[in-house]
């Protein structure tokens, strides 16, 4: 494993974090770049401008999950200081630097899926009914589409750019709710519709829904509920 993100920031060395890259710029500054793609365009180092650059994918669909793979590319931000760099990274990947630091120090508070699903009420209470196999496939489908590494599912961040994820997020819980209903109703995969938003799991054209249902259909019969 190479130099960690925190070490690279302290040493003013280039680094990757998830899908972005950062490199020193001048005596104290930094440049943060999104993935390659499109005409390079500068984005102001302000929360609203950065969110506008990263919260929509190349098809214009809203990305509610900051770590979702497929961040739009071509943008870059010039930061005047380390503090500004950290603010930019916090906007792009909320809490990523905090969780990297806590993970490296051994102080990251990890909360597992059982605990998270057990505390759901109202609309999300049904998520706790999802079978063990359903939960495993949900991790493969949803977390497989995210750059964060689900430490809560027993995975270990192995690459320097990896971001540890300490607790199932609301997108994951929302997916588990739908997956529990799919299990109950015997849902079948549909055709992916690129116009369907990333987290609109109730829509038949949702890519994550269909990836999950295809994987479920391919699983050995004994593992299905």
């Amino acid at each position: 494993m190479g130099m960690s993100v925190l070490e690279a920031i302290a040493a003013r060395r280039p680094f990757r974090l998830g899908e972005v890259e950062a490199e020193p710029d001048g005596a104290e500054g930094w440049v943060v770049r999104g993935p390659d793609g499109g005409e390079p365009r500068q984005v102001e180092a302000e929360g609203s401008a950065i969110r506008a650059a990263v919260r929509f994918d190349a098809l214009g669909r809203y990305r509610p999950l900051s770590g979702a793979r497929g961040m739009p590319g071509g943008w870059f931000v010039r930061c005047r200081s380390r503090e500004e760099l950290e603010q930019v990274l916090e906007t792009v990947y909320p809490l990523a630097l905090v969780h990297i630091r806590q993970h490296s120090e051994g102080t990251l508070r990890v909360v597992g899926l059982d605990a998270v699903l057990r505390r759901q009420t109202g609309r999300y209470e049904v998520a706790a009914e999802l079978s063990e196999e359903g939960r495993r496939l949900a991790v493969a489908s949803v977390c497989g589409a995210c750059v964060r590494v689900p430490v809560w599912a027993g995975r270990l961040p192995k690459e320097p750019e990896s971001i540890p994820c300490p607790e199932p997020c609301s997108v994951f819980v929302s997916f588990c709710r739908e997956a529990a209903i799919w299990e109950r109703e015997g849902a079948v995969p549909g055709r992916d519709d690129p116009s369907v938003p990333f987290a609109d799991f109730e829509a038949e054209g949702n890519a994550l829904r269909n990836a999950y249902l295809r994987a479920r259909a391919a699983a050995p019969a004994g593992e299905q509920r």
Partner: peptide, 15 residues
């Protein structure tokens, strides 16, 4: 912090 966005409510005091 948000119920349905990030940072999540459950991690709102991290850091």
């Amino acid at each position: 912090a948000f119920w349905k966005e990030e940072p999540a409510l459950g991690r709102a005091f991290d850091g």
